[in-house]
Simulated assay, not measured.
Amino acid sequence: MNEYVAEYPRPPRIELISGSVAIYIQDEIIARDCEYIRVCETYHPPSIYIKPSAFTEGTFRQTTGQRSFCEWKGLATYWDLSRSNGDSIRQKAGWSYANPDDRYTSLKDWISIYPRCVDKCYLEGEKVVAQPGTFYGGWITSWINGPFKGDPKHPELM
């Protein structure tokens, strides 16, 4: 299966997927589930959202401070992640939408993670590569093909 992000829609498409997802900080799995939501938007690798119940207790805490606004989903809340004992804090490593726009209500309170902010993410058993740049949170796997927004090699997509 090959997907080309240039063919993804705008506004983004949401898909509930039955499949494996795992997120690591150091050698600890901080989140794991057998379903996730993919948000597929033109020129973006999919952003992956998982239920808060998929996280190990003590591994995520809501942050305070400046929030961001998505034209499709609304006002984002950010999350710090850590190991379950509180070590190795990754600031603003995840985000969610408490009151998403009507079209995206299935995302309500599910959390997405920036792969660049944690040590490893796996999707369907494959180690994920983070979307280029520091703004976007897409998950790149072998079946996702670019060019990708945020990649300095493709300034036309910035």
Results as ranks from 00 to 15, higher is better:
residue 85 N to Q: 04
residue 127 K to P: 02
residue 88 S to A: 13
residue 113 I to E: 00
residue 65 G to D: 09
residue 103 R to I: 03
residue 117 C to W: 00
residue 49 Y to D: 09
residue 41 E to K: 10
residue 124 E to M: 04
residue 89 I to W: 05
residue 39 V to K: 01
residue 39 V to D: 01
residue 37 I to G: 10
residue 120 K to Y: 01
residue 38 R to F: 10
residue 114 Y to P: 01
residue 77 T to E: 02
residue 118 V to D: 09
residue 76 A to C: 10
residue 40 C to T: 10
residue 70 C to F: 07
residue 39 V to C: 06
residue 128 V to R: 10
residue 70 C to P: 01
residue 127 K to W: 00
residue 88 S to Y: 12
residue 36 Y to W: 07
residue 51 K to Y: 04
residue 45 P to H: 06
residue 95 W to P: 09
residue 99 N to R: 09
residue 44 H to C: 09
residue 46 P to E: 05
residue 80 D to S: 08
residue 86 G to M: 07
residue 92 K to T: 14
residue 50 I to P: 13
residue 52 P to T: 02
residue 103 R to Y: 10
residue 100 P to M: 11
residue 42 T to R: 15
residue 113 I to N: 06
residue 91 Q to R: 15
residue 103 R to H: 11
residue 122 Y to C: 08
residue 84 S to T: 14
residue 80 D to N: 13
residue 83 R to T: 07
residue 37 I to Q: 04
residue 83 R to Y: 01
residue 126 E to M: 07
residue 36 Y to T: 04
residue 57 E to H: 07
residue 89 I to V: 15
residue 57 E to Q: 13
residue 83 R to K: 15
residue 57 E to D: 11
residue 118 V to I: 11
residue 59 T to L: 13
residue 54 A to C: 15
residue 108 K to T: 13
residue 110 W to I: 09
residue 88 S to F: 07
residue 123 L to T: 09
residue 69 F to M: 14
residue 97 Y to K: 06
residue 117 C to E: 08
residue 121 C to W: 05
residue 77 T to W: 00
residue 122 Y to I: 01
residue 68 S to C: 12
residue 129 V to I: 13
residue 123 L to P: 00
residue 91 Q to H: 07
residue 96 S to I: 08
residue 94 G to Y: 06
residue 110 W to R: 13
residue 84 S to M: 11
residue 123 L to S: 06
residue 92 K to H: 05
residue 47 S to P: 00
residue 64 T to N: 11
residue 105 T to W: 05
residue 108 K to I: 09
residue 49 Y to A: 03
residue 80 D to P: 06
residue 59 T to E: 07
residue 58 G to H: 09
residue 63 T to K: 08
residue 84 S to G: 11
residue 88 S to D: 12
residue 38 R to E: 15
residue 126 E to I: 01
residue 87 D to I: 02
residue 46 P to C: 01
residue 88 S to W: 05
residue 114 Y to R: 08
residue 119 D to L: 03
residue 51 K to G: 06
residue 41 E to G: 09
residue 61 R to M: 10
residue 111 I to S: 04
residue 104 Y to K: 05
residue 90 R to P: 03
residue 79 W to L: 05
residue 96 S to T: 04
residue 120 K to E: 12
residue 93 A to I: 12
residue 68 S to K: 05
residue 111 I to G: 03
residue 55 F to D: 05
residue 72 W to F: 15
residue 122 Y to E: 12
residue 39 V to Y: 00
residue 107 L to N: 02
residue 98 A to K: 11
residue 127 K to I: 13
residue 44 H to N: 13
residue 86 G to L: 09
residue 104 Y to V: 09
residue 95 W to M: 06
residue 62 Q to A: 12
residue 66 Q to F: 06
residue 91 Q to C: 04
residue 122 Y to L: 13
residue 125 G to T: 00
residue 112 S to G: 12
residue 83 R to D: 04
residue 87 D to G: 10
residue 52 P to H: 03
residue 66 Q to E: 14
residue 50 I to H: 08
residue 101 D to H: 15
residue 122 Y to K: 12
residue 98 A to F: 02
residue 92 K to E: 09
residue 53 S to N: 14
residue 101 D to Y: 08
residue 111 I to N: 02
residue 66 Q to D: 11
residue 50 I to N: 07
residue 90 R to K: 14
residue 81 L to R: 10
residue 56 T to Q: 14
residue 78 Y to P: 07
residue 122 Y to W: 00
residue 55 F to V: 05
residue 84 S to H: 06
residue 105 T to E: 14
residue 108 K to H: 07
residue 53 S to R: 15
residue 42 T to L: 14
residue 49 Y to N: 05
residue 91 Q to T: 15
residue 67 R to H: 08
residue 117 C to P: 00
residue 111 I to R: 04
residue 37 I to E: 08
residue 75 L to Y: 01
